[in-house]
Nucleic acid binder design. Structure first.
Length: 423
RNA sequence: GGAGAGAUGGCAGAGUGGUCGAUUGCGGCGGUCUUGAAAACCGUUGACCUUCACGGGUCCGGGGGUUCGAAUCCCUCUCUCUCCGCCA
């Protein structure tokens, strides 16, 4: 949610900012300002009425106490009409506020000044790349075939028991999952993050707080009997920990890490993008989340970017970092870096991490504030990033490290798996 | 799932229809005293909307109702605790 005062003070720059995200905000902002004017004048009227009613109620109390019943009853008549008026005003105020809120909530976040314009993934800016693209042996195969060959992942059994996109991991495949989770968690913990193990379901208010609702309603699994949503990422519970709070400046920065399963309906996905581990309905991810005072949030974003790069380096995976263009960024983000690793057998780059600064967008939705050194209360900034999502890392590890003897496990991981080859 | 009790400011905890946004204690902040600190004493200390300001309004778990007037009475939802049942 973009703070209202920004829309009021500088509507033109909001319009041009959102144009970078290919969002035409002109009419909507005009409407929001109009509604806000209406809100103010209605509230002023109502407040005047309430002020008079409060005064009268006190007077009536005194009159009754002094036995001046007749005069008191006279005054009561006035309160009746006042009540009628203020009730009506409060109903229309409620309506106006709802309309205003519905309008303001559909505005995406403003992009950072460094965000390039564009609509397509090809408009993203490659800002860094590292590592040699592996030269694979002649008869190398994609990960979904390796999975069957070594019996470490079964997509068929997953389809049978649940449905497409819910694989089983078996034997060394399962252990590889556990090892990656532990490796990622330990990396984050030694970088100063506190580990949380979150609930896998959240309520509606939490879905709204991080921006999944109402924007991505159809992308989450919804347990309707209890009105709970399966989390699409640990970002949702971990950021909502701070919904409706005022942090002391001495409590910032907050740096949390959480492992969780993630659930995504992925409605509308199809074709070879969903082959094997490329796109799943349930997958595992280690997520890092930070809450920062505004002046430090971009330094924190760089730090998170370096953290993710460090992990990929230890896994020996060739990767590149993209600065997402306006059209490819998420609704809530101000600046997003995507990490892609090279999958040799598929000959393509796979997105394995997305690191974003949301500035005050999520904080404003969930009323996450902090008190600075001078006691002034203002919105904090929130950030998060995957560090990392497992499936495509597994895909790249399997494909890039295949050999006639089997699949070699990078040294940094074999400490966690207890084996260094899958054969 | 059944029965009962409860939810008040950062925390603890008063307040059961009328100057209550709320007594008090702790904590926080500022000051006096001190070389400094502690103690003691004095002062100060919630959020939100609105206003240039003075001021006005809203908030005692959420929502609704009764009343001229609600933290206080009624309904409802959520959550917490105790007991019973079931259970990893």
């Amino acid at each position: 949610m973009i703070p209202l005062h920004i829309l009021r003070e500088n509507p033109e720059s909001v319009v041009s900012g959102l144009a970078i995200k290919n969002f035409d905000a002109k009419d909507l902002i005009a409407r929001i300002i109009l509604l806000d004017d209406k809100r103010k004048s209605t509230q002023n009227q109502m407040d005047d009425g309430l002020a008079e009613a409060n005064r009268l109620a006190k007077e009536i109390g005194h009159l009754f106490k002094n036995g001046e019943t007749e005069l008191a009853n006279q005054k009561k008549e006035r309160t009746a009409t006042l009540k009628e008026e203020t009730n009506q005003l409060s109903v229309s105020l409620q309506q106006i506020e709802n309309e205003l809120n519905e309008a303001i909530v559909i505005l995406p976040n403003l992009p950072h000044s460094s965000v390039p314009p564009g609509r397509l993934p090809t408009d993203n800016e490659i800002i860094y790349s590292e590592g040699e693209l592996p030269a694979l042996p002649e008869n190398s195969i994609p990960h979904w075939e390796l999975a069957t060959k070594y019996n470490i992942i079964s997509f068929e059994l997953g389809s049978k028991v649940t449905g497409a996109g819910f694989p089983f991991y078996i034997g060394k495949g399962a252990k590889l999952q556990r090892a990656l989770i532990n490796f990622f968690l330990e990396e984050a913990i030694s970088a100063g993050y506190t580990e949380y193990q979150p609930p896998l379901m959240v309520n509606e208010a939490s879905g709204f707080g991080t921006g999944q609702l109402p924007d991505k309603e159809g992308q989450m699994y919804h347990a309707t009997a209890d009105n709970l949503y399966l989390i699409p990422t640990a970002e949702v519970p971990i950021t909502n920990l701070y919904r409706n709070t005022i942090q002391k400046h001495t409590d910032l920065p907050i740096k949390n890490v959480a492992y969780s399963s993630c659930f995504r309906r992925e409605a509308g996905s199809y074709g070879k993008d969903v082959r094997g581990l490329n796109r799943l309905h349930q997958f595992d991810k280690v997520e890092i989340v930070q809450v920062q005072p505004p002046q430090d949030s971009y330094t924190a974003l760089e730090e998170m970017k370096n953290h993710v790069a460090g992990i990929l380096r230890k896994l020996n995976l060739p990767f590149r970092i993209l600065r997402l263009c306006g059209g490819d960024m998420s609704f809530a983000s101000a600046l997003t870096y995507d990490f892609e690793v090279y999958s040799a057998a598929q000959d393509k780059w796979l997105e394995v991490s997305s690191v974003s600064n949301f500035e005050s967008f999520q904080a404003n939705r969930m009323k996450l504030r902090y008190k600075d050194e001078n006691g002034k209360t203002s919105l904090a900034h929130t950030l998060n990033g995957s560090a990392l999502a497992l499936p495509r890392i597994v895909a790249a590890l399997l494909e890039n490290n295949q050999s006639p003897e089997g699949i070699h496990i990078p040294a940094a991981l074999s400490a966690f798996t207890g084996f260094d080859i899958i054969s």
